[in-house]
Simulated scan of single mutants.
Amino acid sequence: MGREATCQARVGDESAEVKALLESTELILRGAIKRRYAIAALAQVQATAGELRFEANGEAVALALGDTESQRWATKIATPPPSLASKLGVGPAQPAFVLGRVDDAALTEALRGARTDDAAAAHSVVAVVRSDAELAATLEAHAALPCPGL
């Protein structure tokens, strides 16, 4: 996400200028008021009267970001991050040929329904490498794969 703004903040009964950072998993306030809020813990998020307003950890929070920015921040908070499958560009319509052993739960889930044993039918190749020896073996295996369209 990576949004950042210096703004007036109200957190409960406190009010002060802060640097607000909107990261992928949390919203951070730095300055006179210091807080870290997990994005998943933000409730009642809305952009109203130039402020981003929400509740988290039992506190009412308002950040004076202006009309446009508060709406952008609210939209970013409400939009779930892309899945690993989306980031990798794999899925049933974009199958992946896998080199190496997949034992990571997130990668296993991302590849569910996207794996193919036919390298020529693959949209991409996913290589799992954990050592120099595995890298050498993977490079050799990759070199032997068919390259359709080239």
Rank of each mutant, 00 (worst) to 15 (best):
L135T: 06
A5E: 04
E14N: 10
R130N: 12
S24Y: 10
G113Y: 04
R101N: 13
R35A: 15
E17C: 09
A62R: 13
V90P: 01
K19V: 15
K19S: 12
T6I: 05
E55C: 07
G2F: 08
Y37C: 01
E59K: 13
N57P: 00
S86Y: 13
Q46I: 04
V126D: 05
A96Y: 06
V102Q: 04
R115I: 05
C7N: 06
T68Q: 11
R3S: 12
T25P: 00
A143T: 13
V90M: 01
V125H: 01
L139G: 11
A62Q: 05
Q71W: 07
E69F: 13
A119C: 05
G2H: 13
M1C: 03
R72V: 14
E59H: 14
K76P: 00
D117F: 06
L99W: 12
D103N: 05
T68K: 11
L42M: 15
H123L: 02
A47Q: 05
V102R: 07
T116D: 10
A136K: 14
A144V: 05
L150M: 06
E69D: 14
Q44C: 01
A49H: 14
G2V: 07
A106D: 14
E23T: 06
C147D: 09
R36G: 00
D104M: 02
S70Y: 04
L29P: 09
Y37R: 00
G149S: 11
P81S: 06
A16E: 03
L107Y: 09
L88A: 08
W73N: 01
C147I: 10
R112F: 11
A74C: 02
I39G: 01
D117A: 14
T79M: 05
W73V: 01
A136F: 08
F97S: 03
G91T: 06
E4A: 08
P80Q: 07
M1N: 12
L111F: 09
A47F: 08
T6N: 08
T108N: 03
L88D: 10
R130L: 00
S83F: 08
L150C: 15
V129D: 07
T25K: 06
L145I: 12
A137T: 12
A74N: 02
Q94R: 14
L135K: 06
A141R: 13
G58P: 02
V18C: 11
I77F: 00
A136L: 13
A144F: 04
K87V: 10
N57R: 11
S24K: 11
G113F: 04
